[in-house]
Design a protein around this nucleic acid. Structure first.
Length: 871
RNA sequence: GGGGGAUUAGCUCAGUUGGCUAGAGCGUUUGGCUGGCAGCCAAAAGGUCAUCGGUUCGACUCCGAUAUUCUCCA
């Protein structure tokens, strides 16, 4: 069975069991601070499990793009070593939100596997939670055990401990026991030798878990205790790639048709063969796996970068480059060449791969090039380290510096050292790494307390589209400690006019006002699992009283102008540059706006002018806001609305329309484009290969900008005494200045020549040495010039020059190099000794030295005493 | 968000404990030679040593801040 077919059969099966098929959420997560990537099918439903949102359907099924780079059994560094772990994978899932529980979950799973997919029953093992005797004190999951007993022989039911059979999504939140289905794909001989049940959960490549059925019944609180959830849920996950391996009767995920097209492309591009040696096999698997992860996240709008989620993507890509570099011996970009294969293969199920193919290729190629440069640099530095190493053990500290500061991979360092007969002090390296990790962790510690719940929120608590102030009540709050901000409170209200950060728009600021005039500042508003959270420094004294929530309307209005301008800018770019322009990032606050978009070259100044003009024309047309709040996604797209890749849309969407600009958007906007007043681009540049960034200002900021510019210009005109044509005046001045500089140069040179001639005449002879000690009227640089000029044609000169500048004394001593050698003289010593007359000190080299001091009166005396050095 | 590094000629980079009138290669310009593959030889131009402030007799060099950028960790 082809993988395509397996995917659709799964979804159809659950559809026939009254499940709604939903789309995969983006792999890159934007509104959950605790998670960077979707790492399990349940992520997009978290708010349902937490009870923050009421689901539209209580039975749902999907295939979810997931990314895992850390966690139990799945370290990035392990991927590729075996044949069944991946960074990016698809998770097939079926879900019950307070609907069916263990019975149906178990029966559905068994029916699908054994009847639809026709997996032989005697290949399967199941596990149930055995209970725990720790603080949670949980018993055996008897219910699950009994259910399984009806379907499978008892010797195929295995007890699992907390590590394997109790699922938790984090330190806090919903959790519960789970039941797993494992499959034994070994040969008959192997099975005869070791029974399959001994190998379950033992990391055997052919005895693997394929399906995890989680029964959510508890909530883990901040103090570690468990409480029973009001409603019980089912959360299941089946690894798509593994399922394909089972159904296609392969020994490895990489042998299924999910990976074989990629692998043959890699063989072609790198002239290598899969299946010839362990080392190249690992490298090929690494590349095949990583290209998927990287391509999908770029399509989701997450580019490689040096922070956060982007950094994870960069690391994955670099790991692939490294393996190609070392084991496939490819020293130039090659991974980007695989994008075409991937897009051909998966573009049907995931159209974003097709539509963004050339962007993905550009970004990857650029990243490959830059990392290969880093490797080149690192090799040179490593060479230096080896040269400096005495003995055979290379310092872990130096290797860490190479890794930490210059980004040279440590395993490559170790490999090269081994080849050269050195070894690496790994303990020292790990100690350094640990220090770095501890430092980072300490800096970002955030401890959140439990919510204190006081009442119930409205189902849709955001009223800020219509209101900027509203009477509200606190429904829950908690204290949060972070190193950075100190102690803060998070407050949730029954409803709120405060817009939570999202869609590029910053969260509202403002305050909460109590009846007895207590004023609590709201410093930020954010959304977490669909809860709108207000950040404050203090709590109101009366937590149960009515409060007036007031948004800072000045900031809000400016932000709205910038947001609407962003939409118009987007429209303008597509109009001026073409419809290949897609939003790749956006940031809107009260100060300015920033818009990143896909485009292949720098915008010309004509293009920028056109874009600016286009937006300002829309402003001038005074277009009214046309807002539709309850469209379905398809309706909105049908009307021509622009949706963003990598954005998660709910069942009903909001469309914002200004004339011909229509976008799906949750942000707040002006009522009429005239409120924007004026749009001005302040900068245009590149952020990555194929991505440009425009920054712009509107409204008050533009007024400020124009006022400033005008006053600068009028000041310039005033200074120039030429208000009609300041540009010409400046050109004149510049020309004049250049001429004067030239003349001055000539004059100074002549003066120096004169002075040089004069001084040359004054040179006397003491003990056969040309000697001169004299006060001159020059600064330090001039003296230096003069001294070197005098010394140029005289290799028998002892020169001491004194000068007075800004009330300070200066002595400079020049002694011809030949003389220094012959007579063992030292100009440094000379100025240090003579420095005492001017109450100062100094030094320099043997042939030229300077000293400075506070006492100009002493210069004469110092000059007097100069000859003593020659006597 | 935290740590480390970098910023020197158009480009790629040297510059040792503070004192070299700041250098190299490539590129540019000019002249000469030369039937080729990065032609050869000679000469020249090109620098606010990222910016601002401090320490010092003296800062490319040390210290602090800012900007830009690379990198590791979260």
């Amino acid at each position: 069975m082809k993988s395509q077919e397996i995917r659709s059969k799964y979804l159809e099966f659950f559809q026939s069991k009254s499940h709604e098929i939903v789309a995969s959420a983006p792999m890159v997560i934007k509104d959950d601070p605790t998670l960077m990537f979707t790492n399990a099918g349940m992520n997009q439903f978290k708010e349902y499990f937490l009870g923050n949102t009421v689901p539209k359907h209580n039975r749902v099924t999907d295939t979810q793009k997931c990314l895992r780079v850390s966690g139990k059994h799945n370290d990035l560094e392990e991927v590729g070593m075996d044949t069944y772990h991946h960074t990016m994978f698809e998770m097939l899932g079926n879900w019950s939100f307070g609907d069916y529980f263990k019975t149906e979950a178990i029966h559905f799973a068994w029916e699908l596997l054994t009847e639809v997919f026709k997996v032989k029953k005697d290949l399967l093992y199941v596990s149930v939670f055995e209970g725990s005797s720790d603080n949670d004190n949980l018993g055996l999951d008897q219910e699950a055990y009994d259910l399984w007993k009806e379907i499978v022989p008892e010797e195929r039911i295995i007890y699992g401990d907390k590590k394997d059979n109790f699922w938790e999504m984090g330190d806090q939140g919903p959790c519960g026991p789970c039941s797993e289905i494992h499959v034994d794909l070994r040969t008959e001989e192997e099975k005869a030798a070791v029974p399959g049940r001994d190998l379950v959960n033992a990391d055997h490549p052919q005895v693997v878990e394929i399906w995890n059925l989680v029964f959510m019944e508890f909530n883990r609180k901040a103090d570690g205790s468990l409480e029973k959830l009001p409603a019980q849920h089912v959360d299941t996950g089946m690894g798509f790639e593994r399922l394909c391996m089972v159904l296609q009767d392969k020994k490895s995920n990489y042998d299924t048709d999910v990976f074989t097209p990629l692998i043959s492309s890699i063989e072609k591009v790198t002239s290598s063969t899969y299946g010839e040696s362990e080392k190249t096999d690992i490298a090929i698997r690494v590349v095949a796996d990583h290209i998927r992860a990287v391509a999908f996240s770029i399509a989701d709008g997450q580019l490689p970068s040096n922070t956060g989620a982007g950094y994870v993507i960069r690391r994955i890509l670099r790991r692939a480059i490294r393996y190609g570099f070392t084991f496939l011996n490819i020293k130039e970009p090659f991974i980007y060449k695989l994008v075409a294969t991937l897009s051909n293969q998966m573009g049907e199920a995931f159209p974003e791969l097709k539509s963004q193919k050339s962007l993905i290729e550009n970004v990857i190629r650029e990243e490959e090039q830059s990392f290969l440069r880093t490797l080149d640099q690192g090799l040179i530095l490593l060479e230096k380290i080896i040269d400096e190493t005495e003995g055979e053990v290379v310092s872990g500290k130096k290797a860490f510096e190479l890794f930490d500061t210059f980004g040279f991979p440590i395993d490559l360092t170790a490999l090269i050292l081994r080849e050269r007969g050195y070894s690496l002090d790994e303990n020292e390296f790990n100690a350094e790494l640990k220090q770095q990790k501890d430092r980072s962790r300490a800096a970002s510690v955030v401890t959140a307390g439990d919510w204190t719940v006081r009442g119930k929120e409205d189902v849709n608590p955001f009223v800020g589209y219509d209101l900027v102030e509203s009477p509200v009540e606190i429904t829950r709050y908690r204290k949060v400690d972070s190193k950075k901000d100190g102690q803060l409170f998070q407050i949730v209200l029954n409803k709120t006019p405060f817009y939570p950060e999202g869609g590029g728009q910053v969260g509202d600021k403002g305050f909460l006002l109590s009846l007895d005039a207590e004023k609590i500042g709201v410093i930020d508003t954010k959304k977490e699992n669909n809860l709108i959270i207000h950040f404050t420094k203090t709590l109101p004294k009366d937590l149960s009283g009515l409060l007036m929530a007031k948004v800072d309307t000045t900031k809000r209005r400016r932000t709205e102008a910038n947001h609407t301008a962003t939409h118009l800018l987007h429209q303008a770019l597509r109009h001026v540059l073409g419809i290949h322009v897609e939003q790749k990032g956006s940031m809107v606050n009260h100060d300015h706006l920033r818009f990143d978009f896909s485009h292949f070259s720098k915008l010309t100044s004509e293009e920028l002018t056109k874009v600016e003009h286009f937006v300002n024309s829309r402003i001038q047309e005074q277009i009214k806001l046309n807002e539709q709040r309850d469209l379905t996604y398809d309706e909105a797209i049908g009307q021509g609305a622009i949706a963003l890749f990598g954005e998660k849309y709910g069942d009903s969407v909001r469309a914002i329309k200004f004339g011909n600009s229509m976008e799906l958007c949750g942000g707040t906007h002006v009522n009429n484009t005239a409120e924007i007043w004026y749009f001005k681009i302040t900068s245009e540049g590149a952020v990555a290969a194929g991505i440009r960034r425009i920054e712009a200002i509107t409204g008050d900021a533009v007024k400020r900008y124009f006022t400033e510019q005008t006053s600068v210009l009028s000041e310039i005109s005033a200074e120039l005494k030429n208000t009609n044509n300041p540009i010409k005046a400046i050109q004149n001045i510049q020309e004049e200045n250049a001429n004067l500089k030239k003349q001055l140069d000539v004059l100074l040179r002549e003066k120096a020549k004169d002075l040089k001639g004069e001084l040359q005449k004054e040179i006397t002879e003491i003990n056969g040495i040309s000697f001169l000690a004299k006060k001159v009227d020059l600064d330090a640089g001039g003296i230096k010039d003069l001294a070197f000029q005098l010394g140029e044609n005289n290799d028998n000169l002892f020169l001491l020059l004194g000068a007075e500048n800004d009330g300070k004394a200066l002595l400079s001593c020049f002694i011809s190099k030949e003389l220094v050698k012959q007579k063992n003289l030292d100009a440094g010593k000379v100025v240090r000794e003579l420095g005492k007359y001017i109450q100062g000190g100094g030094g320099g080299q043997a042939f030229f030295a300077t000293a400075g001091g506070k006492n100009p009166q002493g210069i004469a005396e110092a000059l007097e005493n100069a000859k003593s050095f020659l006597e």
